[in-house]
């Protein structure tokens, strides 16, 4: 499970979830405004790469912490 604090993106949580969805990545908001992502048996390496690429688009300058 990964929780992302999205405040540094200057975007609200709903917008981040929408942008992830537009990039083909399903994620959910938490009650604290974080973005939650959960790995499971149907996720493979390619899926993780898709998610990482989507996050690079959302937070292009990055904090450097998105590299797995």
């Amino acid at each position: 499970m990964v929780f992302v604090d999205v405040r540094a993106t200057k975007l609200d949580t709903g917008t981040v979830i929408e942008r992830l969805r537009d990039a083909g990545v399903g994620a959910t908001p938490t009650d604290r405004g974080d973005v939650r992502m959960v790995t499971h048996a149907d996720v493979d390496d390619d899926g993780i790469d898709v998610a990482l690429e989507a996050w690079r688009e959302i937070a292009p300058s990055g904090s450097g912490r998105s590299e797995a």
Binding site: V2, R21, V25, G26, M37, V38, D42, A51
Partner: peptide, 11 residues
Amino acid sequence: YRVDLRSDTVT
């Protein structure tokens, strides 16, 4: 989704 990370219940 190309990758569905909403929950581990989506398998």
